[in-house]
Amino acid sequence: MQKVWKNLTKSKEISILAIIVVLAVCITIVNPNFLTVSNFFDIMRSNSIYGIMALGMLPVLISGGIDLSVSSTITLCAVVMGKFLQANPGSNIVVAILLCMVVGALAGLVNGLLVTKFHIPPIVATLGTQTIVMAAVLFYTNGMWISGMPDWFLSFGDIQFGAIPSAGKVVGMPIQILFLILVGIATWLILKYTLMGRGIYAVGGNVQSATRVGYNVSRVTTFVYIYSGTLAGLAAVTDILIVKQIDPNTFSGCELDVIAIAVLGGASVMGGIGTVFGTFLGIILMAVIKNGLVLVRVSSYWQKVVMGIIILVTISVDVINRRIEKARLVHVDVEE
């Protein structure tokens, strides 16, 4: 029991959970509206887009890479879908979603090939594709909004599940949160129960050993970028289902926020470490900071300050803990 407790306190996830609980309690004391089902659904709905992308970023980080191109991929997919729906208003939701995910997967495939075939460092390769794709999309749209989505599409975004009485209203869970949950489950299943998923952890932990035991490192690396692209595509659908139109400029620069969520959730940019549970906590923490500060009348301008400080403190504490443990390591069995 003591050991379990020790492991719990050691894990980064628990410290993030603790921060969330403390923040939630403080905010609720000042403004009881915070801790209601309807508010929770609201904030999670608007953060589901970042959440889905962060779940795509997670395997990339675990494998020891990084994907700066999620911002351009989500924009690309959103615009492709917008144009597609304008041209084919008689299509259906399944086609729309599949289209986005396929386009995203192709964008990811390009990254994967640049990294594995041409040995370009991931940070540079994805920066390059980000620049190119973002510029191409903006060139094509000229930065103009796309609207006029078919009604059947927009009404799909208003679907809610269940009926929970909350704060005098009856609310259901928005479909966007369902997307987030499904993606979370899928990512968890992949990471936990497929050989590919275990390969991602193995490659991020020790590339040499991974090769030695027979993992195909190139295939694993290519997969994580395809997966990240695919989820950026799904995030594009989710976004349009909320905002109901497409602004090609909103997502420029969002890749760092996405990485921040994954890092807050305990993923390591050095690879090998990260969980779906942690990433969910990262999403919730981000949502609580954004929404909670507004509810307690702290100017929203403090959001980024709080995020920055939390990132700096959690990673510093982690590094210091590791160093203390390393110093305790016994090198020689000294004769007493």
């Binding site: 275990r198 952890y201 193995a202 932990g205 020790n206 050993s209 090998g272 470490i273």
Partner: peptide, 14 residues
Amino acid sequence: ALFTNLTVAENIGI
């Protein structure tokens, strides 16, 4: 040459 980031079971059984 173990995967130090993974569990004992996985290192042995994968």
